[in-house]
Amino acid sequence: MKKDIEKLPQDQFERIEIDSSHAERIEKPSLSFWQDAWLRLRKNKAAIVSMVVLVLLVIMALVGPHLNGHDGAAQNLRHANLPPKMPGIEKLGIMDGVGNLSGEKVDLYAMKKVDEYYWFGTDGLGRDLFTRLWEGTQISLLIAFVAALIDLVIGVLYGGISGYFGGRTDDVMQRIVEILIGIPTLIVVILMIMVMEPGIGAIIIAISITGWIGMSRIVRAQILKYKNQEFVLAARTLGTNDSRIIGKHLMPNVLGIIVINTMFTIPNAIFFEAFLSFIGIGLQPPAASLGTLINDGFKVMEFQPYVLLFPCIVISVLMIAFNLIGDGLRDALDPKMKD
């Protein structure tokens, strides 16, 4: 505090004009909610890697069945129960067509005089597992996406209407939900699937029939939270009509949580499809889904573990990827985490 006062050049002490509007300038570039969220998401390595993995899996689900020229439905008993054999990798000592035959390691391809490569091996009917795996992934993803879409539409509409209009409408709608939510999902899903003709449609309906409730509750809670906040009241005071308040003021705020929730509905649907197919009441043979493939693999696990292994890996990676993306989105979109 006790610095000597030094002599400074006099011109330094000229007064200057400060344009005070200059000081109001905002230093940081302004970011929209979604730009900001994207910047955050981009920093989340796990979520980004998961996105890449997911895109790869979706591409494989679409093109995979056509990659190696085998038909997933074609049975060829002469080629049954062949272990995986992949060109290139076979030289590493894995996936080289060597399998167990009564306790001994034998090159089954040589023994059965098979010249083709079955990358992931064949099942007991001689069907190519690589092709079937990606066909199954395709079906599982299809079921999951459609089920999630149905949940999304019904859940957002139901929750939105209930929350926005409130009053008697909300009362009646919430009494219904309160009863429905008491019914365990698993029970509903199993009962529905038993009643309907087995197939993709039945599974989708069974999963969606109560799936939307979670979404509707979240949307309602959010709408209730925002609709009485000052910015909405302000808009209302200015004479904004309902549809504009919903579209311009409420939806952008609720959208984040809808996206997050959908990201968790999808893996849930994948799980239920696989679960149903695994216990034998989902898709019926010869149709393939990840669940039926795992079920097939489980039956022959002792002798042909590869039949089980590949669909297990795919479903696990798929579920992990969706969960990590969901987590990443939640962190990115949750304004509470903002620093």
Partner: peptide, 22 residues
Amino acid sequence: AILGISIPSFVFATLLQYFVAS
């Protein structure tokens, strides 16, 4: 935790059974 939430119980159970038991 992510593994536990993501991997379906029946996948985990079959893998446990295959490796640990058989």
